[in-house]
Amino acid sequence: MQHALTEHQSLNDVLGRLTGDLCAATASATLVSPAVAIIDRAIVEQASLNQSLLRGLRKHTLAALRSPGRFVFSAPFRIIWTLYAATYTVANGTDTIGHALKAPATGMLTFVSTTLVNVPTAVWKDVRFAQIYGTSKAKICEGSQKPFAQNPNFMRGATAIFLLRDCVTIFGCFTLAPRLADAIPESSSLASHPNVKPIVTQLTVPMLTQLVATPLHLLGLDLYMRQYPIPLADRLVQSQRYLASTTMVRCIRILPAFGFGGVANLEFRSFFHSMFAVS
């Protein structure tokens, strides 16, 4: 009887933690989505329409502040919220279940499961943003008088690059950052508080991944926007001309998405786990 009661309590504890994981994911996604939606729109419009990145950020931020209801209930906001709610939910849930089962490779399981959810959802988000803010406005392809038409080969190439970009980001955010936090010596000044090490790595490592992810992002956007034969050297020159400014903005973008968002998710998980803990 005692053994059955213990198992029952353990199951309830895991279910309580999973409920907390879902609440934490929902709160974190709601917190980060406004900034990410504005930044992603400005980046797509810069790449496809040659619009000023800073002007786009300012314009869309002011528009969101003037009409917050319209902004929050818009399709782009819903797309971004869905992306991060799904990502945080799977990452949190996999971590909770892995630790409950005492799985030896919980970190790798979290990376794999989060990648399987985040990457296709992020690619869907990128394609939808390109359709809404890029190709829907740029009706005529550069150097051609023919209307824009999708080419399956270029679509597959762009999708593959977006997949690689997101694998780099997810690995840095959910696998590399925790590993580096664990690798910081206990004698370090960062170990003075139990939460300092994960906070520091969660804020810095995701930003550093953008040094690799941003060139891939711009090349993928170029393949999607210009779906016609172009010499690779010309495509690289054109796609990377905004590399410095876009890298800076994507580093800033990653802070709310996986930096501050990741820290907020950790804190929300701790709060909701204690709230739903089995006494």
Results as ranks from 00 to 15, higher is better:
K102Q: 15
T114V: 12
L83I: 05
R58S: 01
A75I: 13
E142Y: 06
F148W: 15
L57G: 01
N50W: 00
Y133G: 04
Q145S: 11
S52I: 06
I80K: 01
G56S: 01
M108R: 09
S144C: 13
N153A: 14
P76W: 06
D126E: 13
T96L: 08
D126S: 14
L57W: 02
Q131I: 03
T106H: 04
I140V: 10
V112T: 13
F71K: 02
L83V: 04
G134W: 03
S48C: 13
V44S: 00
V90G: 06
L65Y: 04
P120F: 15
R41D: 00
S67V: 02
R156L: 07
D95H: 07
T61W: 03
F111A: 10
T94Q: 02
I80Y: 03
A105T: 14
A103T: 08
I140T: 15
Y84Q: 06
T94L: 04
I132A: 08
P68I: 01
Q131A: 15
C141A: 12
L83K: 10
D95K: 07
A149D: 12
V123L: 09
R66Q: 12
A122V: 09
T96S: 14
T110Q: 08
P76H: 05
L101Q: 13
W81F: 15
G69R: 11
V72R: 07
H99I: 07
T96M: 09
Y88M: 07
N92M: 12
N153K: 10
P76L: 06
L53W: 01
F77D: 00
T94I: 15
P152H: 11
F148T: 02
L116H: 09
V123Q: 07
N153L: 11
H60V: 00
F77T: 00
L62N: 10
A64T: 09
A64K: 00
T89C: 13
A138S: 12
T110C: 07
G98I: 10
T115K: 04
L83P: 08
I80P: 01
C141E: 11
V117S: 10
A91W: 07
G107K: 05
Q46R: 05
A130F: 01
